[in-house]
Amino acid sequence: MLSPRDESDLSEVVRQTRSPLRITGGGTRPIGNPVEGDALSLAGLSGITLYEPGALTVVAKAGTPVAEIEAALAAENQRLPFEPMDHRTLLGTEGTPTIGGVVAANVSGPRRIQAGACRDGLIGVRFVDGMGTVLKNGGRVMKNVTGYDLVKLMAGNYGTLGVLSEVSFKVLPATASMATVMIAGLTAHKAVAAMSAALASPFEVTGAAHVPEAADGQPATLIRIEGFEASVAYRAGELQTLLARFGGDSRIETDPDALAPLWRGVRDAAAFAGTELDVWRISVKPTDGPSVAGALPDAKHLFDWGGGLVWAGVAPGTDVRAALTGIAGHATLIRASDETRARLGAFHPEPAPVAALSAGLRKKFDPRGILNPGLMG
């Protein structure tokens, strides 16, 4: 395994290599098509290099554990805005989630509907391209974000355009209080309608999920409110009244010891942990969420982002994309055997114009084709 110690060392490793590179962070997310190549670990590039609570910014090397960053932010009563998922529960992996891995995969949790995705919180990057050149874009504080927006380009390219060495984020104050309106017994159609109504309300919803099979075996629709205690209590009560027309038995949960694991389970798709099912991540417009469930009647489902994100657990080897023909969106294969990933491809095939743009970008940033070749198709 290649293990550079710093950005300069990383640049030299990439410049000197003659073989494809399989880039790894904390080893928690074997997502994408299988990659053949020399393992390049970023674990040596670790540490928070700048944290200014007053400016709401944090800068860290790519191999820095997410837990280390979250602990530093919590000490100042702050947090990352986008609630990054921890894939270890779903994938049954070990390792340590790193901030570079979060950016490379644009990992975003339930709060995305209110705070945006990982890429929306990213304000600066440093990375090494496929020729070993160190590039930087954006800044270390929000007012310095200028130039071509390579920052957004680096979020979600899975290391195929460059190897991240440092990332900068805007952060937000932590929430003082949380409540969740929990509605039992709704169908998928009614749950999506209820979540849409909640998201269209003025009550600042920060989470909207539907679990077709909760701990008691009944479906549960979850609407999260966060903020100051008095405001949370008022808004949760108003939401409960607003959503009464959709039926079901509703209650308001405010116990943090109950809510933390509940939303962590939604964030991490914990419903699929320990099963033998292939797991797909399906992005559609929220009103199409029930259609996804209808097209996969034998699947196990979890709805997030108001119905716009559907997690589906299916029998091993199932071609979910074929079943969803006619429903606009994209389906990513998150957990399956290497054979299934190789046969179906982890990522949704791109339309020809988009594929041409992607190929052009890869040729520009990685002309030798050595950075995670084939991972994204």
Rank of each mutant, 00 (worst) to 15 (best):
K190A: 12
K190R: 14
K190H: 12
A191W: 03
A193T: 01
A193E: 11
A193Q: 11
A194W: 07
A194M: 04
A198P: 11
L199E: 12
L199M: 15
S201Y: 09
F203Y: 15
V205K: 05
V205A: 07
T206F: 03
T206D: 15
A209D: 13
A209L: 09
V211G: 09
V211I: 09
P212G: 01
A215P: 02
A215F: 05
D216A: 03
D216C: 07
P219K: 02
P219F: 03
A220T: 12
T221Q: 00
T221E: 02
T221F: 09
L222N: 05
I223E: 08
I223V: 15
I225S: 06
E229V: 10
S231Q: 15
Y234W: 14
R235G: 12
G237E: 04
E238P: 09
L239E: 08
L239Y: 08
L239D: 07
L239M: 13
T241D: 02
L242R: 10
A244M: 05
R245S: 06
R245V: 02
R245E: 11
F246P: 07
F246T: 01
G247C: 08
G247T: 04
G248N: 03
G248S: 08
D249T: 13
D249I: 10
D249A: 13
R251S: 10
R251C: 10
I252H: 05
I252R: 03
T254E: 14
T254Q: 12
D255E: 07
P256A: 07
P256Q: 06
L259N: 01
L259K: 06
A260D: 14
P261C: 09
R264C: 11
R264M: 12
G265I: 00
G265E: 13
V266M: 05
V266A: 09
R267Y: 06
D268T: 08
A269W: 10
A269F: 12
A270F: 08
A270K: 01
A273C: 03
A273I: 00
G274L: 12
T275N: 03
T275I: 05
E276V: 10
L277S: 06
L277M: 03
V279D: 04
R281G: 11
I282F: 00
K285N: 14
K285T: 13
T287P: 04
T287D: 13
T287R: 15
P290S: 08
S291I: 11
S291N: 15
S291W: 14
S291H: 14
A293Y: 01
G294H: 10
A295K: 01
A295R: 09
L296P: 00
L296Q: 00
A299Y: 03
A299W: 04
L302T: 07
F303N: 11
F303Q: 06
D304G: 10
